[in-house]
Design a protein around this nucleic acid. Structure first.
Length: 185
DNA sequence: CGGATTTGACCCGCGC
DNA sequence: GCGCGGGTCAAATCCG
């Protein structure tokens, strides 16, 4: 596998076949996905799980929620608190967005270490699991392609980065900051 | 040599 | 209670 760096559809480089070529319009597209999700465009994703203690023992290494076959866009903004009564549920913010890209590796400026890869049912392409390699930063991310359109890559972020970006990436940094603003967290 | 990847095994939640 | 699906760990491997 070759390593593609800097290949970023969000960038100004017009190499990609991104529907919008304007500068800020890109971010708008992203937000469109988010809003659509909240509106019920996609199926709601449950972010019920929590993580009381960090992974210290090899036995307590289960967390995360299991999503359905389809890709769902979830977020910490989910009205989870409304239905459940006083559960120790720590909302785990989850963000997902689709991008049109030839490569799975979307460099968002953070350092990721791949820790797993699993084949998904209903999908010929495997899903990759990444984790941020920053001390104290347990942000996870998974990348998956759509069976229908291999050109579409779905990236799902889990958690928020509590540290500055390690790599200068103008455009995405801007988008990221906007995403954080958009989120109540 | 150190850090990142790879890949199979293991484990858990849920549905039947 | 078992099987399936999905997620994570961990040892071995690869690469710079």
């Amino acid at each position: 596998m070759e390593k593609f760096q800097m290949l970023f559809p969000f960038s100004s480089t017009g190499s990609s076949n991104y529907p919008v070529s304007s500068s800020m319009t890109d971010s708008s597209h992203v937000f469109h996905n988010f809003q659509a999700d909240n509106s019920g465009g996609f199926l709601g994703l449950k972010t019920e799980n929590h993580h009381p203690v960090p992974r210290t023992s090899p036995e307590s290494n289960k967390d995360l929620n299991s999503q359905s076959s389809s890709l769902a866009i979830g977020s910490g903004t989910e009205p989870q608190a409304a239905k459940k009564k006083g559960e120790k549920k720590i909302r785990k913010p989850k963000y997902a967005f689709q991008t049109r890209s030839q490569v799975d590796i979307l460099d968002d400026g953070y350092r990721w270490r791949k820790y797993g890869q699993k084949a998904v049912k209903n999908n010929r392409f495997p899903r990759s699991y990444y984790r941020c390699t920053y001390q104290g930063c347990d942000v996870k991310k998974q990348v998956q392609r759509l069976t229908k359109d291999e050109g579409v890559v779905v990236t799902t972020y889990e958690g928020m980065h509590t540290h500055p970006i390690e790599k200068p990436n103008d455009n995405f940094e801007h988008i990221l900051s906007q995403m954080q603003v958009y989120t109540p967290f």
